[in-house]
Design a protein around this nucleic acid. Sequence first.
DNA 1: AATTTTAATGCAAATTTTTTGCATTAAAAG
DNA 2: CTTTTAATGCAAAAAATTTGCATTAAAATT
Lengths: 142, 142
Amino acid sequence: MCHHCDYKSLLEQSGLGASENRLSVLEVIGNNSYPLSAGDIFKTVERHSAINRVTVYRILDVLVDHGIVDRISTGGRAFYYGLAPNSHHQPHSHFYCKHCGQMDCLNPESLSVDANLLKKTFPGRIDKVEVRVDGICKNCIK
Amino acid sequence: MCHHCDYKSLLEQSGLGASENRLSVLEVIGNNSYPLSAGDIFKTVERHSAINRVTVYRILDVLVDHGIVDRISTGGRAFYYGLAPNSHHQPHSHFYCKHCGQMDCLNPESLSVDANLLKKTFPGRIDKVEVRVDGICKNCIK
DNA sequence: AATTTTAATGCAAATTTTTTGCATTAAAAG
DNA sequence: CTTTTAATGCAAAAAATTTGCATTAAAATT
Ligand SMILES: [Mn+2]
Ligand SMILES: [Mn+2]
Ligand SMILES: [Zn+2]
Ligand SMILES: [Zn+2]
């Protein structure tokens, strides 16, 4: 849940029209405390307003392209989506439970990554360093 | 390319029958210097011996389940497969080029991850910490 | 060696997730 | 008000993976 982000201006600052659908998708993502799959997002938006599944995919693409939302890989075969790091959200890694498929955001302090050396020596463009922890969550472990 | 691994005994040590197909799949993965997709592996094995695509998927599953092979997520929608860390291969992270889809293995020293604090405090089971760097490779950047 | 049991494979079809093409509607610009 | 552009919907396709079931090969028993 983000109380700091103004979704409408997040869109407008990127030159994107703040359509009803885009706002709904972004709110679902931003109001959730962990990343969601496109299917989850579709089902949630759909409960309140009519929307097509393809529209959700297209909105997710445009939000990812504009750096508003992060596309996060899982140990499964669907991507999950969460707010991209910004002034209110520092970068952090995620935990993926391979039993129930739930993702959790991990405390940035609990896991540290140092990519400085790589960034200096890598002969290509680096856009993102994604860290994902896979295992079984505390609910499923019982 | 791994000159140290004896694929046949890797299989047998895990209690897996060393069938022709399993050996072929494991050799293709082990002899390659970067991770490959199931489709790549299928096409490569197929050139020398007849094999069904589904068999490749099933062999990959069994190799991953037994910790012989690592299933590696990409920024795209297919998994890639590489030899799992063992006495001859230390754990390392990977680079994924979102233009050509090629993965590279990164030097373990170029990127350091410290998951000790997480492992102490996380209320679940941690099986794997995957680090993936996304961007554009030196060939595609031109 | 013949028989029974288990493991591995093939093939067809289904599933899941994502993408594309094209028509329609809504919004913005002129 | 008209023209242009952006957003959406719907149907279909594509890509990756999974499932069910039959067949074959290998291993274990008798
Ligand atoms: Mn998060
Ligand atoms: Mn590797
Ligand atoms: Zn779980
Ligand atoms: Zn490339």
